[in-house]
């Protein structure tokens, strides 16, 4: 088994673990962490594809960089929505116990 194949398989396993988390977890933060785990799995598959040939391929590296930026943007938007919801749910700061 070649090294890049091993990395690809690990990436797919990470993707699966993340998928389980996205569906099974209840809290939004857990879901987001699971989504990012899936993303890392995909990036690993891409990076492994870069070493599939003889020469290291720069194209998957560029794709992963773009993917990271997009993942940051998506995660930030989800966090913002979750915080807005939290604000709506607790307009008045709770009294200390």
């Amino acid at each position: 088994m070649t090294q890049d194949l091993l990395y690809s398989i690990t990436g797919i396993v990470l993707f699966g673990i993340g998928l389980f988390g996205v569906i099974a977890a209840a809290h939004i933060i857990r879901k987001l962490i699971a989504l990012n785990t899936m993303g890392i799995g995909v990036f690993m598959v891409l990076l492994a594809a870069a070493r599939h040939g003889v020469v290291t391929d720069p194209v998957p590296h560029a794709m992963v960089l773009t993917g990271i930026v997009v993942a940051v943007a998506g995660t930030a938007l989800c966090l913002w929505l979750a915080l807005q919801l939290q604000l709506l749910d607790s307009p008045v700061p709770e009294e200390p116990p």
Binding site: V13, A49, G53, V54, V55
Partner: peptide, 26 residues
């Protein structure tokens, strides 16, 4: 999910062939 991931991994292993080089072109 385990079944689907296993199927995906098998698909990758079965058709593991050398891809044409975009790297050298770059």
């Amino acid at each position: 999910i385990t079944t689907l991931s296993a199927a995906l991994i098998i698909a990758v292993i079965v058709s593991d062939k050398a891809a044409p080089e975009l790297a050298s072109l770059a």
